[in-house]
Design a binder for these strands. Structure first.
Lengths: 341, 341
DNA sequence: ACGACTTGGGTATACGTTTACTGCATCAAC
DNA sequence: GTTGATGCAGTAAACGTATACCCAAGTCGT
């Protein structure tokens, strides 16, 4: 069942059907009604591929994330999807799981489907891959992972703001030995968080001595906590590079009979939805996934709409801020060791 | 840059280029090499919409879930995506958030993009909507939500197996007052879990007296726990219809100073990845999301491959089983009340 | 040496839309 | 009544690919 069939049954030409369906003004209302009647009767839906072919517009937007099973992303995907539908777009979702092969596949899939633009939320895309997209003038929007070059749309995140609040909050609770569990060093955004931590500590005259490295997973958080427990000078508080890490840290602490927040204060980062349902609810730095997605989508849509790729550098910024919950408490006045398992 | 351009540069016809790209045997290896050389040089990728148009195959599979932010789904989406790519398909992901309007949109989007098949993991799709898909002979695979009609491919889940294990496990720990937090009653799969609980309790001669209703969210779990606390005969163990509910229950218990598992044993359902990272790690009934996705994908691919829709009823079954972790423990010998906040 | 196959590449059509162009009315203005 | 403008619907040409069909040249049997 196609447009021609509609035309035949409504006794008009295909052009008229097309115009009626697309609400082009130059079609007689009465004819339009006749066309719509047939369309509804037959339950006809236009073929998007044919449309895309002739119009040169696929009405598909690409979304490349690193891992959809990371609770940080589903919220973003959801928001993206809603906005896409509202704007009559489809989204092509791709996850790289940080695998170069999958990254290449992602790009290929995007190009084959002729996406009109791509939002990139994964780090480590080879420049050569991005070249494929740029070569075809596909608008790109990077979220916190983009290169610092002109003409690149980048959503930046102000990490310092929230992390400074976290550190100051802990300091106000009389914590002095504050540890940091960093994210993987290949991740620029993780590096930025570590830097923000160091800066914040320095600002209030504390030494950011204890920094261990995680990998932004729960398992990594567990390992980091083990490492922390081995340190000679036990921290009384730990700030984590993301919430997943914090969850791992909490879990490992539990295994060692360490009570949160009595024995140890913990602060996360991201404020994934789950954070508030932990026991205890996790104090964390908020970075609204929904807002992030909205900004990214809007930016992408703007780029797609712009006829000529502008060379001006577009920057957007997302502010982060501390959300107080119950995984942080006053530091113990004396250095009484917690009970080891 | 299109196939014709390649043809021009390789000094062959478009037919040859097409054949070379698709590895059709009838093309001279030397010519093929020449074609591929140009293809690589230009970084050419075939246009999928044009392909779809002429071949009548979109190479897109639909995937309708209820809510991607529900941690149960991302794992499934991921597996589905991987399998799709392996089979040279793209997936069109849609979430209904249990909104009739979005369900309708989902179906429309699927049809417009001419998906070759759809996997449905959401409940409450109107029969009239499904009719649109059936009318177009789009292969459908339901995961635990399908109608019991012939010719419908349905992946069924054996709830009884795992829930019986859970109940028996609790009974072995000397629990007699075992509560159940049910899921929303409009959800058939939730109803099935409740039934399985009742059956299991009856089997060992216990009364399934305390059943409160949640909604498969963490907030619902919290509310259910509040309700449970108000009951005159406090349960010593509670089985939850899904893990999200269990997390909510645990969280609310924490707020009331109730310690898990000392004061209260908790069992979840689904074994989402998070379950093992709770404090304490959640004892739960496993229902492998990955396996589920694999079964569903395979079933869908089979249906798509089958030339004529078979009328035989295809059934697949997924077994569930209890995973022991640390949210369950021996029931207190005496009925010493837990401390209220 | 000649016809019958076989092999493999080219020609041209079709897929389902959109849209530039064409052409027929109708109508206003003179 | 002729001319010019305007409104609207129809005709046909794209969009980029796959493939049915055709045809040239080579192979082989007799």
């Amino acid at each position: 069942m196609d447009l021609r069939e509609i035309a035949r049954r409504a006794k008009v030409s295909t052009a008229t059907v097309s115009r009626a369906i697309n609400h082009v003004s130059t079609v007689n209302p009465q004819l339009a009604k006749r066309v719509w009647k047939v369309v509804d009767e037959l339950g006809y839906f236009p073929n998007t591929q044919a449309r895309a072919l002739v119009s040169g517009r696929s009405r598909i937007l690409g979304l490349i994330v690193s891992e959809i099973t990371n609770p940080f992303f589903p919220e973003i995907v959801q928001t993206f999807e809603h906005l896409a539908v509202e704007n009559n777009y489809e989204i092509l979702l791709t996850s790289t799981v940080n695998d170069p092969k999958r990254m290449e596949q992602s790009v290929r899939r995007m190009i084959e489907r002729r996406v009109e633009g791509v939002a990139i939320l994964t780090f480590g895309m080879e420049e050569s891959l991005l070249g494929h997209l740029r070569f075809r003038k596909v608008p790109l929007v990077f979220v916190d992972v983009g290169p610092d070059a002109p003409g690149i749309v980048n959503i930046r995140i102000n990490y310092l703001n929230g992390i400074r609040q976290a550190v100051q909050h802990l300091a106000a609770l009389r914590h002095t030995r504050i540890a940091f569990v960093a994210g993987p060093s290949r991740l620029k955004s993780a590096l930025a968080r570590t830097e923000a931590f160091k800066t914040s500590m320095a600002e209030i005259g504390l030494l950011p001595e204890v920094i261990v490295t995680g990998d932004h997973t729960m398992e990594g958080g567990m390992r980091a906590m083990v490492e922390l427990l081995g340190a000679r000078d036990q921290p009384t508080a730990v700030v984590c590079s993301n919430d997943m890490t914090a969850i791992g840290v909490m879990r490992e602490a539990y295994d060692h009979g360490i009570t949160i927040p009595t024995d140890l204060s913990i602060v996360g980062f991201d404020d994934i939805r789950l954070a508030q349902f932990m026991t205890p609810p996790l104090t964390t730095v908020q970075m609204s996934q929904k807002e992030l997605a909205q900004i990214a989508f809007r930016a992408l849509l703007d780029e797609v709409g712009r006829e000529s790729r502008s060379t001006q550098k577009s920057e957007y910024e997302l502010i982060t801020s501390l959300i107080l919950r119950r995984s942080t408490a006053m530091a113990r006045p004396l250095n009484d060791a917690h009970r080891e398992q």
